[in-house]
Design a binder for these strands. Structure first.
Length: 779
RNA sequence: GGGCCGGUCGUCUAGCAUGGUUAGGACGUCGCCCUUACACGGCGAAGGUCGAUGGUUCGAAUCCGUCCCGGCCCA
């Protein structure tokens, strides 16, 4: 290297360890604080998903999603917005309770409530610091100073406020209905919390006698233990085999009770024997038939998943045990004629993977069916990125058939703020704006408004956790705390989330915020794809294909991980986790570093008189800049990252840089030409750094501060595009010509610095001087 | 059974809406090269009958029909 030029960046490779240094600077400078503009349109409010601390390690797909969201936030800042990018932690509900039960080896029901809550808090604090630490490592530029927790007094106050408001609007009611119940979690769950799996089970065919007849009916069932709860047999009205039996009475074996035989079109003639027993409740069809035929419920399973006394000798047994015992008894009694193993689609609790039971229980409900049309209208009005994922929401709204059960029989969640008169049972709701714990606190009333009684009993149940999280746009906009701030930040600009929680978080947020404010909670929705394992399978702890991203991030750096996350899959598409490809992104980081290092050895001229080579380059850069700016406006970091990589590596470094290198060193060039090269090199590098800054914030800021700025690159705007009159085909010709010379030299066994005779194409005459110098072309 | 998405070199993908030069790039592989930013590099090469099959057309990865496979969601 000639002595007059020495690089400002010394190391020959980018060291990811420098990321920690950069992070400290950001924390010290607090450059990501939100300063609300009084012009609402300048505020860009992101409704971020507060992560759920459900265990370690954190799902690598989720981590990737958070980095993608951060790129949206950072690019919005560089587009000139004041960005509110909250950091929250979702700390309510089941996963934490299950985690605490495992970690501290306790059972919730056998632990005093206060004590159990404290254990949950402990577990949460531990997980939370782990997660926040990872977020910071990844360069998530959220507002850590105002980090919120959904189990804070402030947040729960808001949840209880929303319940009281919705109650006042008449949207809350209590009903005793058959409900999804998880005997393992001991609580009611919503349809949205159920998943289905094909599981092996026994299909038992039992013979039922028909009264006053010699007829016998084969009845196929997967739930023989519910025999005591059978209230009817049904066949398909078109089934000729059983026409004669319809209207008669059958005798239930073992219990010797009489039940009617009816016909209903819901019965599948081909399933089992074609005769089905209707019990309370084997499945949803039972629920429907009980309602339709006004049958009397028999509760055969209790809230612990044990058989009740109506089942006689099976009382107290677990469902599974009762089932095998019953099958054995039926076989011994000669009632069971056939026992076959089949695959049966079984509803499972999403959290505990236990088969759910349908048990009649009294719960609080929030009306939602009346709002379908309104929500559909909102969903169509909101802008979706990508547009195709709007359909997930619309489909879900289509299939809703019951209102939303909101009460849960758990401990670690927001309490339902209700007290009941101990005499007449009338529910009393307190004034909103205070956090209430009715299971512990004295009632804030003197007398029952109905009967005058002075004693109250506090509600012990809590809310479903989506009752809390569905209020995030109201919480981050300080609905209860700061009306002015609220008016500037609600509705939010953008909701960001994964496609797995469309039917829960997205849907419930729309529902509740619309019910409470009459508006949509956000203008746009960003739906990310899911991280899968290297084979494209869903990553889950139970499958054992879970990857811990932390050591990979430590190895390659957050920027490499982020770049990979940006460039791997288009917005909304699933992506596969691959260490190899993250390593590949790490190489790009190094390429960026070394490009900057080389160019850092040249002065930065204010302006220059450009040669055609420079004009060509700046024109190409302009094209790239326009493409990237447009892509950022669509939150499409996939396009940005891939276009920048291709430009940087294949056009700028491999071609322009080689063409301008000699000129930059002053080799056979005028001072003017040399300065033009310097100028262009810096213009391109500056723009590339700015375009990459939202995606790889550490490296770009580090270089920027060393080389160009007195302030962080993250306080700059995205670059402007410049245009020159350069013929369209020139770019391709240059690339082709260079490749051809390189190939010729290779074929002839020449070194790159050896002279070669070559004819420069007519349309590249303007670049002749640089090309001759670059390839050492002789005439 | 219904919906959505996808099926392009070993792997990840661009192109497909507005059909038309040797289907572009990345990762990996192989060969040559330590050329004064980078060997975490440079250059080159191999590798694809664009899921299958009909059709429209002078011409289809691209448009239309049917089918198959995978993923997710729903029944």
């Amino acid at each position: 290297m000639q002595p007059q030029f020495s690089a400002k960046l010394e190391a020959t490779s980018w060291d990811p360890k420098l990321e920690a240094e950069m992070r400290q600077v950001w924390e010290y400078e607090r450059i990501f604080d939100f300063k609300p503009s009084n012009d609402k349109n300048h505020n860009f409010v992101i409704d971020t998903p507060p992560p759920y601390p459900s265990g370690k390690p954190w799902h690598p797909g989720a981590l990737t999603q958070y980095t993608q969201i951060d790129m949206v936030a950072r690019s919005a800042r560089m587009r000139g917005f004041n960005v509110l990018y909250p950091v929250g932690i979702d700390r309510n509900g089941l996963p934490v309770e299950i985690y605490a039960e495992r970690k501290y080896r306790v059972q919730m029901r056998k632990t005093p409530r206060e004590e159990f809550i404290n254990l949950c808090k402990h577990a949460l604090d531990d997980l939370e610091s782990y997660m926040v630490g990872l977020m910071k490592t990844l360069g998530i530029s959220g507002d850590y100073y105002n980090k919120y927790r959904t189990d804070s007094e402030e947040y729960r106050k808001l949840t209880q406020w929303s319940f009281i408001e919705l109650w006042k609007k008449g949207l809350i009611y209590v009903a005793n209905r058959p409900n999804n119940y998880c005997p393992d979690c001991n609580t009611t769950i919503a349809d949205a919390e159920i998943e289905y799996e094909e599981l092996p089970t026994f299909l038992v065919t039992n013979t039922f006698k028909v009264q006053d007849s010699r007829m016998e009916l084969p009845v196929a069932t997967t739930r023989p233990e519910l025999l005591a709860a059978c209230q009817m047999l049904v066949v398909n009205p078109a089934d000729s085999r059983y026409k004669k039996a319809v209207g008669k009475t059958a005798i239930i074996p073992i219990y010797n009770r009489e039940v009617p035989i009816r016909a209903h079109k819901s019965v599948d003639q081909k399933f089992g024997s074609g005769v089905v027993m209707v019990c309370s409740y084997g499945d949803y069809n039972d629920v429907m038939l009980f309602r339709e035929f006004k049958l009397k419920e028999v509760v055969a399973v209790d809230m612990d998943g044990k058989m009740t006394t109506v089942t006689g000798k099976y009382a107290g047994a677990a469902i599974k045990d009762a089932r095998s015992q019953m099958i054995q008894d039926l076989q011994e009694a000669g009632v069971a004629t056939k026992v076959e193993q089949i695959q049966h689609r079984t509803p499972l609790c999403e959290r505990s993977k236990t088969p759910i039971e349908i048990i009649p229980m009294e719960e609080y409900y929030l009306k939602q069916l009346d709002f379908k049309a309104d929500l559909r209208r909102l969903a169509k009005k909101m802008e979706f990125h990508p547009a195709m994922h709007r359909q997930i929401l619309l489909d879900w709204m289509d299939v809703l058939t019951t209102d939303y059960p909101i009460s849960r029989r758990r401990y670690y969640a927001t309490e339902i703020p209700v007290w009941y008169c101990s005499k007449c049972g009338t529910p009393h709701l307190p004034k909103p704006g205070v956090y209430y714990r009715p299971w512990r606190d004295a009632a804030p009333f003197k007398k029952c408004k109905k009967c005058g009684n002075e004693k109250f009993v506090g509600e012990t149940r809590t809310f479903d956790t989506w009752m809390d999280s569905s209020l995030s746009p109201l919480f981050i906009s300080k609905r209860l705390r700061n009306p002015h701030f609220h008016s500037l930040t609600y509705p939010a600009t953008l909701r960001v989330q994964g496609k797995d929680i469309v039917r829960t978080w997205l849907y419930y947020t729309l529902l509740k915020c619309y019910q409470l404010t009459g508006k949509e909670p956000f203008k746009q929705v960003w739906i990310g794809g899911m991280g899968q394992d290297a084979q494209g399978k869903k990553m889950s702890k139970s499958l054992g294909n879970y990857v811990d991203a932390e050591p990979i991030i430590a190895k390659f750096g957050a920027d490499a991980f982020r770049f990979w996350g940006a460039s791997e899959a288009g917005l909304g598409y699933d992506f596969r986790f691959s260490e190899e490809r993250i390593a590949g992104a790490g190489k790009l980081m190094n390429k960026v570093w070394n490009t900057c290092r080389f160019i850092s050895s040249f002065p930065v001229p204010e302006k220059a008189i450009l040669t055609w080579t420079d004009k060509w380059m700046i024109n190409e850069l302009g094209k790239l800049t326009r493409q990237c700016t447009e892509a950022y406006a669509r939150y499409d970091v996939f396009t940005v990252s891939n276009k920048v990589r291709e430009f940087l590596w294949n056009v700028f470094a491999s071609n322009y840089l080689e063409m301008a290198k000699g000129r930059a060193y002053g080799d056979g060039a005028t001072k003017e030409e040399q300065e033009a090269a310097w100028y262009t090199l810096h213009v391109v590098v500056k723009s590339l750094l700015l375009l990459l800054a939202p995606i790889t914030p550490y490296l770009t800021d580090y270089v920027w501060r060393k080389q160009y700025g007195t302030q962080s690159i993250h306080l700059e705007k995205l670059p402007e595009a410049e245009r020159f009159e350069v013929s369209e085909k020139v770019s391709q010709s240059i690339l082709e010509f260079n490749a051809q010379v390189w190939k010729t030299k290779r074929d002839k066994g020449l070194a790159l610095k050896d002279p070669i005779a070559a004819k420069i194409p007519a349309n590249l005459k303007q670049f002749e001087k640089d090309l001759v110098r670059m390839h050492h072309i002789t005439k």
